[in-house]
């Protein structure tokens, strides 16, 4: 996983709540067996409308998505995170994320930042009025900065440490091999097995 320390970029204000993962990447894209090439599927249905914010010329190359509450609800598809990343987003800001989506994003180095809705409103107003306005998400300082905006955000220390260092969960867990083996030995024998060894 790529480490995330700080990022500055232009923003896409997405004034919609409850953006579910079926909107982020529709199911027919899920037939692919790779982690890349999902950029054209991102918000596919909405992008058919030339006025959709992502299609606006002034939003090309933007890397910060500022979305409404309950972003990423619905299916567990990690493809939603890959699609956002493949498209070029480095971070998503919202007042509330669905749990599975949030977990998936942090595991892939897409920083999801939770800010109060008032701050999201302020970011929307700023970036709608001035599409060239830059937004900085600083994970070291846990701050979001933009013209007239200086907001602190929370992220649990462990997730932050893994992101800052780009650490992969599996290698970290495998360091606890002895604990896993001890647990396995003590498991009750009545627990089911899918195959008999």
């Amino acid at each position: 996983m790529e480490a995330f320390t700080t990022h500055t970029g232009r923003a896409v204000p997405l004034r919609r709540s409850n953006v579910d993962t079926d909107q982020i990447i529709p199911a027919h894209w899920l037939k692919k067996v790779t982690r890349d090439g999902f950029e054209d599927g991102l918000f596919e249905a909405w992008r058919k409308d030339s006025e959709f914010v992502l299609n606006r010329p002034e939003r090309q190359g933007a890397t910060v998505l500022v979305a409404g509450p309950d972003f990423g609800t619905g299916s567990s598809r990690e493809h939603a995170v890959w699609a956002l990343q493949n498209y070029g987003f480095k971070t998503v800001i919202s007042s509330r994320f669905a749990d599975i989506f949030r977990g998936n994003s942090l595991k892939n180095g897409l920083l999801t930042v939770v800010l109060p809705q008032e701050t999201v409103d302020a970011l929307w107003e700023l970036t709608e009025a001035d599409p060239t306005a830059e937004v900085t998400v600083d994970l070291e300082a846990r701050k979001v900065l933009a013209a007239g905006i200086d907001a602190d955000f929370e992220l649990d220390e462990n997730a932050r440490w893994r992101l800052l260092n780009g650490l992969d969960d599996i290698s970290l867990t495998l360091q606890n091999e002895a604990d896993i083996a001890a647990y396995e030995t003590a498991r009750p024998s009545f627990k089911p097995r899918t195959i008999t060894a």
């Binding site: 567990s76 599975i100 867990t173």
Partner: peptide, 18 residues
């Protein structure tokens, strides 16, 4: 609970999840 693909890989490799 439902998990993402990174977690699927994690469970395949370790049979655990943080």
């Amino acid at each position: 609970f439902g998990i993402g693909t990174s977690q699927v890989e994690h469970v395949l490799a370790t049979q655990t999840l943080p």
